[in-house]
Amino acid sequence: MYAQMIKTARSGVKTREEMTEQERAFQDKIDADIKIEPRDWMPDDYRATLIRQIGQHAHSEVVGQLPEGNWITRAPTLERKAILLAKVQDEAGHGLYLYSAAETLGESRDELVRLLHEGRMKYSSIFNYPTLNWADIGAVGWLVDGAAIVNQVALQRTSYGPYARAMVRICKEESFHARQGYHAMMKMALGSPEQRKMAQDALNRLWFPAMMMFGPHDSESTHSEQSMAWKIKVKSNDELRQQFVDQTIPQIEYLGLELPEPGIKWNEDRGHYDFSDPDWSEFMDVLRGNGPCNVDRMNARRKAWDDGEWVRDGLLEHARKKAARAVAAE
């Protein structure tokens, strides 16, 4: 998802007998759905895993501004431009809320940003794919935000209070994102032949990357068990992926677009859609930095940060001068 392949800082779940008394009390709270708050005692591994997960989630929001931002200046109407700008602005806001949640764990935003820029933290693989035609903007809102919200709705119940509250706020704001994307897709799919071509192209290109957002199969995902026990992760990768496919196929059919891959079929016995696996070797390549846009995305983020340094320093220096003058005047 926006936080993929988060390595839990410990392998294997401790049994009750292996836990210290403090750890047992902690696990009891989690089992009773009592939220963990910043100043509460927590295992170091819980803290470290959360910082990694929330940080990666925050980075994804901020890097995620770039593929959609790519079309703000080319939006085809004033209204679409306003909608897209408001949406991408929301992503910046969501990044900010999430960095704030991570800061309650004692990790500063600047430090997290530094780790991202040094390549020591990741963001979601999906944002390493390009937006090549205007329908991609509709498809990103519909599929990518649609996939994200499946996960984020579940995360509103996560055990760490500040993370859960950030998710509540984010889900409330996100509700318009998927809808505006689908609405834009409708205009395209039901529009001129060229618009229809753009819509189909966007769906075909973004389908598998969207599937990958949920991360590898549960059987391959070695770090989930402890995160599930801690309720940092609430539903498994495969559960969430299936839920997303089931809700999305009827939406594709309504648009009258062709299904993006031949493996999609209703399975009467399971009561779910079957679908093909994405190319997991491509997924691993993207995670290793070899996606179509990895280098450009990171260059853009580093440039924004480096170019902004004099601004951040300048405004801070002014605040210090102002404070010093106020003291001197007293």
């Binding site: 408001a86 806001g93 809320y97 950030a166 405004l315 605040a319 102002k322």
Partner: peptide, 22 residues
């Protein structure tokens, strides 16, 4: 929620821009 700002005046403005968008 929280945010970063160089001083109180800018913090209020940032709060207006970040937390009252709706």
């Amino acid at each position: 929620g929280s945010l970063h700002a160089p001083d109180a005046d800018m913090a209020i403005k940032n709060a207006r821009d970040v937390y009252t968008r709706r």
